[in-house]
Design a protein around this nucleic acid. Structure first.
Lengths: 151, 151
DNA sequence: TATTGTTATACTCTATAACTATA
DNA sequence: TATAGTTATAGAGTATAACAATA
């Protein structure tokens, strides 16, 4: 059921759309959130550190500034986040060729390894999805593709 | 494509299940996250404050301890979060009848109002969902119900 | 003894503003 | 002048440990 502000506008759109959204929010807040927090905690990463590891693809050095954009945060935060990743030997700062203001970030060997473990665990589907029949899975996949694509 | 750790186990389960999960994660990290951050920022709430407002249902006073459980965090954090909500006049601390150790939390009038605005905005489905046909929406809703229910 | 809420402490994330070294 | 990265600072969330009041 939908909560309304007293005197607020009535719900727009069909009820099914609202329930879909509510279900997606629930999923994100429970199942998905627990999985993410649990995984990064096991790997001794903070959420922004894990996010940074996802953005830093092996063999693709990027500037600090680009990482800030990827993490949707102010560049001043990146210094500390990268400091901690570098202290753990997961990332290296390198001088950029051509512009001496820029430092590029590169995953180390163990950075690449930890990133792979992280992505592998995060991409493991929960039992509730695996419990659907193959047909239902294809159906759900196609519908979600359209929702994610149609942004 | 799936990222594998060198020497790691191959992906379990059908590819569709993994893609579904990946799509749900993407949705959660982009569309859903932006909506949530944008909404709570507009209402001048922090994410935990917004979460607390969701847990504190009108007419249902709960103990600080229960709120800590609802927010999945240590009780010591609740003091500060409630301090700030109380300073804004959204919540009141009250003595609990029967056990003088316990303080119960109650939404004020403006707390109830802000909570309604928050939930109303968060439950508004994004265009990509509204763009599906009524049939597709019912299909997607039913599948998600099973995923969320089958936990 | 155990529980409720608080305080003290320490760490991380977050933004803003000022600084440096480059461009 | 403008940009990349850093530093300083302040506010908020997080956990652990210790505490007072109460059960």
């Amino acid at each position: 059921m939908t909560v309304k502000a007293p005197g607020g506008a009535p719900p727009r759109g069909p009820a099914a759309a609202r329930e879909i959204w509510t279900l997606l929010v629930e999923l994100s807040m429970s199942n998905l959130r627990e999985r993410f927090i649990g995984t990064v905690t096991e790997l001794e990463l903070s959420p922004p550190q894990a996010h940074a590891l996802k953005v830093l693809r092996p063999g693709n050095p990027i500037a600090m500034r680009e990482l800030a954009d990827g993490l949707h945060c102010d560049p001043s935060n990146i210094t500390g986040i990268v400091d901690r990743l570098e202290a753990r030997g997961l990332v290296e700062r390198r001088a950029a060729p051509g512009d001496r203001r820029i430092k590029t970030l590169l995953l180390t060997g163990s950075g690449v390894e930890l990133r792979a473990r992280l992505l592998d665990r995060l991409s493991e589907p929960p039992p509730a999805i695996a419990a659907l029949t193959a047909d239902e899975q294809r159906q759900l996949r196609d519908l979600l593709r359209r929702v994610v694509g149609g942004r």
